[in-house]
């Protein structure tokens, strides 16, 4: 007979808020950095240079086809052994950024490809520089196209940040494993942490929808879908 007893975890609740913050902080940094990586990657993938296009495609294919866990191990243990030492938190951050950056690249590329070529030519003929072209013409439209897949990916990053626990980063999953190991209340620990992740993911979902509505309301009538 097993008694489900969340109270058994009470002595361990002290470090929990810190663990949640750590998960959020790690995820937030990874989201920002991977957006930057994704933008660069997407520009490479649509660039005129063959080398840049190949490099962009190779980056995406390699990172999308290797499990994040292996990338984390490779950075934390592998690189350290050949002399490049990155601590646990930063290893997890780099791995998450590289992994999510590949997916970001594909999302941004999809967005860029959705802009008709004619618009680039029109903007050029208006005398816009490359930077102005992207700032005023391309990115505002791209963001409207990509905010939905972007939201999914952001949830994916928060979820994947749980892998940082394998290299000893103190975050929500590490908390769960420790609380479980010490109390043998594994089911309760799993349950508590499962709820935390679901709430985080749904908070992002709601955030995405609000942003989406706001973006669409600001869009010119023709661009609404």
């Amino acid at each position: 007979m097993y008694e489900f007893n969340l109270a058994g975890l009470l002595p361990y609740t002290g470090p929990l808020p810190g663990a949640v913050l750590s998960t959020l902080w790690l995820s937030a940094l990874a989201i920002l950095l991977s957006i930057l990586v994704g933008m660069l990657g997407a520009l490479c993938r649509v660039s005129a240079s063959l080398i840049l296009r190949f490099a962009g495609a190779a980056y995406v294919e390699v990172l999308r086809n290797i499990p994040l866990l292996v990338v984390i191990y490779l950075i934390f243990f592998g690189l350290a052994q050949v002399g490049l030492r990155v601590d646990g938190f930063n290893s997890a951050l780099i791995a998450l950024t590289l992994n999510a950056g590949a997916y970001m690249t594909e999302i941004f590329r999809g967005g860029l490809l959705a802009i008709p070529r004619g618009q680039y030519e029109a903007a050029r003929s208006q005398g816009m520089t490359g930077l102005q072209l992207y700032r005023y013409v391309v990115f505002p439209q791209v963001f409207r196209i990509i905010y939905a897949p972007l939201g999914n990916l952001i949830i994916g990053i928060v979820i994947s940040s749980s892998l940082a626990s394998v290299i000893g980063v103190e975050e929500v999953t590490t908390w769960m494993r420790r609380a479980g190991d010490e109390t043998f209340r594994y089911m309760e620990a799993f349950f508590a942490v499962g709820v935390i992740y679901v709430l985080l993911a749904q908070a992002i979902n709601i955030g995405r929808i609000v942003t989406g509505n706001w973006l669409l309301s600001k869009a010119p009538v023709g661009a609404r879908r």
């Binding site: 008694e3 709820v195 979902n205 709601i206 509505n213």
Partner: peptide
């Protein structure tokens, strides 16, 4: 707004589930 409802729904349902499990104990 359909998606929004879905998200709120999932949150509420999770909350309900928490309550249920916390009240009952698995025999």
């Amino acid at each position: 707004m359909k998606v929004m409802r879905r998200s709120v729904l999932a949150t509420v349902a999770t909350g309900l589930f928490v309550g249920l499990v916390a009240l009952s104990s698995a025999a």
